[in-house]
Amino acid sequence: MKPQAHFDCNAFRVAALDRAALSEHACAECERWVGRLALREGLLRTLPRMVAPSELEGLSEREFQSEGRRARAVRALESLARVEAGDEFDRAVEALASGTGPQFSARAPSVLERLVAEDLANPVKARVARQFEGLPRLVAPMVLEQRVARELAKPRAERKLATRAWLSVAAAAIALLSLAPQAFERRGAPSDLQSARGARPFRVERLESTRDLSPSARAWFETVSSGLLEQNNI
């Protein structure tokens, strides 16, 4: 095989592993290689799944717990070799201790102190406030403003009556909902989104593609169809 051809074959095979650019390279040997690749993939799928030792799960869990992390950090620090400080560093420290060296600012900016204090006092509130404080404030549409103005211009008694009417409608709706939840559930199920079957209603999700099948469903369909999904790559 020529060096250039060999280079092309390698490039093609790397692309084949990524399932890309398969048709751009026509070489009998590579076609055979792809065939063997598919076979190996199929055979690998048939191999029994190896089960990790049960104690591994416990060990992994402990390692990822805080105690484990601390212990791991201590172990890592203990394993480090001690680095000797240079003479220059020693002299600088001695000068600082005696007050003869350069003066450093030891205080953080006040804004930083305030932010840290807010975070510690109420972390969630501080995070939410920080997220929203940069958003532009939206102005209500003119139509809405005019409606509010008209409403406020009405006599107080008339406003009260309208409010009562709305409250009555809301109360009736709440009563209806609480008295007949089943009826609403069934009427609200023109499709399969909410299904009232038997004593316990449940939601039905219809998968659109065989790509979304669970492993058990795929295995079942492969058996009953004599491998139709695998044959057709669906």
């Binding site: 209603p201 999700e205 219809r206 998968l207 065989t210 099948l213 669970s214 169809s225 999904l229």
Partner: peptide, 22 residues
């Protein structure tokens, strides 16, 4: 813990449903 059943697309005449109830 949601009550939901997933319906697989039919493969020819065969069907499969699975999920969690109660």
């Amino acid at each position: 813990s949601e009550d939901v059943m997933r319906v697989a697309p039919s493969v020819g005449p065969w069907n499969h449903v699975e999920g969690t109830l109660a």
